[in-house]
Amino acid sequence: MTKHHDIDENSEVFDFSRHKQIAIAKYLPSVGFHADLAATVKLITQEALKRRQIRPHSIEARAKDPESFGRKAAKPSKIDPRRPMYTDPVTDITDKAAIRIITFFPRTVQQIDKMLLEEFFVIEHAVKGESLLEEERFGYQSVHYLLKLNASRTALPEYQRFSEAVIEVQVRTILQHTWAEIEHDIQYKSSSTIPRDIKRRFMSLAGLLEIADREFQAIQDADRDLTEKAQTLISADDDLSTVEITPNSLRTFLDKTLGPDGRMSDFSYDWETRVLMRLGFTSLNQVKEVLSKYDDNQLSRIAEGGRQGQLTRLQHVLLAALGEKFIERHPWAHEDWFQSRRRNILERFRGSNIPIGGYDPQAHESIVQNIASTEELNGGANEPAD
């Protein structure tokens, strides 16, 4: 009878411990090679995602730990528990080198799938969640690939040694990864053995995670749609009363009206958005109305002696338009230095015959709402009777 490696088919008890130790001994000399392979595939993946402007949460790379490799080598077969699952572990175990790509949103998983198909030779592609259901095991979906470097890369000297090497790639969302990380601590693996109450809780949790993933994706889509709509209205110089003040919409609007300023950070626009909301502004239309009444360059020269940056000029216009209300409602209203500085600028404006307005965005919004309500009522009264 033919023997397969370390398996003695005539023996009644297979020596799993010896099988494990032999597997580790055979695997140890190649650990460095698989670490290099994982690092190389990670680098290729990072560059490929960057070219496509796909932003993952993180990319992890590793060579399988020898002890972990040994434990996997010693797993019993599902068909015959008296025999190991892997008769030749060094050949049969395919995750000796692996990378894990974690994404923010489910749609990014699809984008990464397309990238992997274009950049690598895909040997195998599997959705883990589907196989878990078939095996009646609990788990949460993630996508697994077995890849090789494609021929165009292995033709290059630096990649030739990886020409036949296989690497596993896992792609998950953050929520899928959270489930996977705690899955090792879940005692019950089969739905046939789990108590009914705990089973219901497992199923509810899996459903909640899936709903959360979908909702995060829907929120991202809605945010993108609002941003695109705001950019369209701003570019067309259309009515901006429906455009909320957000860091993105404010940046787009100010770039158009006051000129772009590449020195400004995302935090600067986030802060300025909070200031406008604190002052009582609710739409870009109000900001547009205020800016139309003043020459921002003139105010900047009077206040600072020269033309300042985009957001500083906006602050000067707001100060001139709101007067004392700007100082009283500003987040720094409690600071003496702020009050003194702004009142000093107000005096310079007055000395240069700049009209100091009493614009109140809160009152303005109330007037607009009252007018709209009156027009709606009048419209209803003027409708012809049936």
Rank of each mutant, 00 (worst) to 15 (best):
F138L: 13
V41Q: 06
K199V: 01
E12G: 13
G309C: 02
I93M: 05
L319S: 07
P355F: 07
F14Y: 13
D92W: 08
D238L: 03
T273G: 05
R153L: 15
R342W: 00
D295K: 02
S68L: 03
L209W: 09
I194V: 14
Q315S: 14
K3W: 03
R307M: 02
D360Y: 14
G32L: 08
Q170R: 06
S17V: 12
I24T: 05
W337H: 09
T312E: 07
H334F: 07
D113H: 06
I234R: 02
F162A: 11
V169M: 07
G139L: 01
L149F: 13
V171Q: 00
T227I: 15
L208S: 07
H364W: 11
R263M: 00
Q21N: 01
Q141W: 00
E215V: 05
L279C: 04
S131G: 14
A126K: 13
L43M: 03
R55I: 10
I44F: 08
T193V: 02
K199R: 05
E164C: 08
K75E: 08
G280K: 06
A372Q: 11
D113V: 02
K78T: 02
L311V: 03
S204K: 04
A206V: 10
G323E: 09
S268Q: 02
L284M: 07
I59S: 09
K78M: 10
L156W: 02
K256T: 13
D238P: 00
M1E: 12
I356T: 08
A48Y: 03
D386Q: 09
I371Q: 13
Q160N: 14
T178E: 12
A39E: 08
Q298G: 01
R350T: 01
E9C: 06
N150R: 13
L250K: 04
